[in-house]
Amino acid sequence: MPLFKFTRHGGQARGGQPHSPLPWIALIALILGAVALGFAWLAGWIGRDRLTAQDFTDAIEATGANHPGFRRAHSKGVCVSGWFEPSAQATQLSRAHVFAQSRVPVLGRLSIGGGNPHGADNSARVRSIALQLSSDDGQQWRMAMNSFPFLAVATPEAFYEQTRAQIPDPATGKPDPAKLAAIQEKYPSVRAFQQWAKTAPWTDSWASTEFNSVNSFWFTNAQGQRRAVRWRWQPQAAVHELDAASREQAGVDFLSQDLQQRLAQGPVRWNLLVTLAGPQDAINDSSVPWPAEREQIAAGVLNIDQMQPQEQGSCNDLNFDPLILPEGIAGSDDPILAARSAVYSQSFNRRERERATGAAARDNAQEQP
């Protein structure tokens, strides 16, 4: 049925007067104007009393993480590939087809925290894994996971404030200590995160690092049972902790060098452990960790058997948006999750434009000694 129905009576309206098109034109213009206004609001061109993906990405760049052609965060990494093998118990959790087929192709990326693509592995406190699982029904499950088990803050507004506080003072080249202290005072969860950073082990390899979904998601199985979950990749490799002296000796590229050596001996593996939320657990607040005694289900094994430099690897042109999910998996209402998705898209679009205009090549040439 058409949106508008025009009735003509010999070029005249029912009252005998000529049928003027002006009211219809005005109505159509009004609708088109409303649509344009909506797009402008979503793009952040108007309504500047709210935060946008542009604001977040600009703030991240202002901290010093501005290397054209590279990701704004976790800039240094390598591409990896392999496969995922679900367990027999996985279909109890979700009807997603990645849990139903015997072997699922995986494309991914291992990285370190920070915005410097030439950063030092031995000084990066945070490590990350990003994965794309592609099932044979054409659906994808993308995830971006970190070595920390919870976030320092709970909302996009708080995250933005925290990022802004980390922007270097032009006079000193370092963040203002007073601004950092004010963030800690305002958000007690920041102190909890800092305590994790001080006490969590520095492992000797990506292969021995545990990675966490951090945000919560919903799994729905074939029977319609819906459960809130978080998941993590538990390493099968033995965990060896590095002390300060060992880290210094390890070198700035030791993670990629170690992974290459391990892959020469065979695949590197992680177990997928899915944690089920308890009745009182925070589902939409990723700054609150769930108790360790929550029920966990072993849902499969990740096998990585190939790696490539990210500049030539297939992962380089992939946006690991954590809200690209297959049927049977859905995002929670955690506001940080939606913000991550939007900022990932903004960062991806910027670096693609930079590559297209040659800005990335110019920046790389300047980086050369």
Rank of each mutant, 00 (worst) to 15 (best):
L133F: 08
S134Q: 04
S135G: 05
S135F: 00
D136N: 05
D137A: 04
Q140T: 14
Q140Y: 13
Q140P: 02
W141V: 01
W141M: 10
M143S: 09
A144H: 15
M145N: 15
M145L: 14
N146C: 15
S147M: 05
F150G: 00
L151A: 05
L151V: 00
A152E: 00
A152P: 00
V153D: 03
A154L: 02
A154Q: 02
T155S: 05
T155P: 07
T155Q: 09
P156V: 06
P156N: 14
P156M: 10
P156Q: 14
E157C: 09
E157K: 10
E157N: 08
A158D: 09
A158T: 03
A158V: 10
F159E: 07
Y160V: 03
E161R: 14
Q162E: 13
T163Q: 13
T163K: 12
Q166I: 02
I167M: 10
P168N: 06
P168D: 08
P170K: 01
A171I: 04
A171N: 06
G173W: 09
G173H: 13
G173Y: 09
K174M: 11
K174C: 05
P175V: 00
P175D: 01
P175N: 02
P175L: 00
D176F: 03
P177N: 01
A178F: 06
A178C: 07
A178E: 14
A178T: 11
A181K: 15
A181S: 15
A182D: 15
I183T: 04
Q184H: 12
E185V: 02
E185C: 02
K186G: 12
K186C: 09
Y187E: 01
Y187N: 03
Y187R: 04
P188G: 08
S189K: 05
S189L: 04
V190F: 04
W196Y: 10
W196L: 06
A200P: 01
P201V: 15
W202F: 11
W202E: 13
T203R: 02
D204S: 12
D204C: 10
S205N: 11
W206H: 09
S208Y: 07
S208E: 05
S208L: 09
T209C: 09
T209E: 12
E210A: 12
E210P: 03
E210H: 08
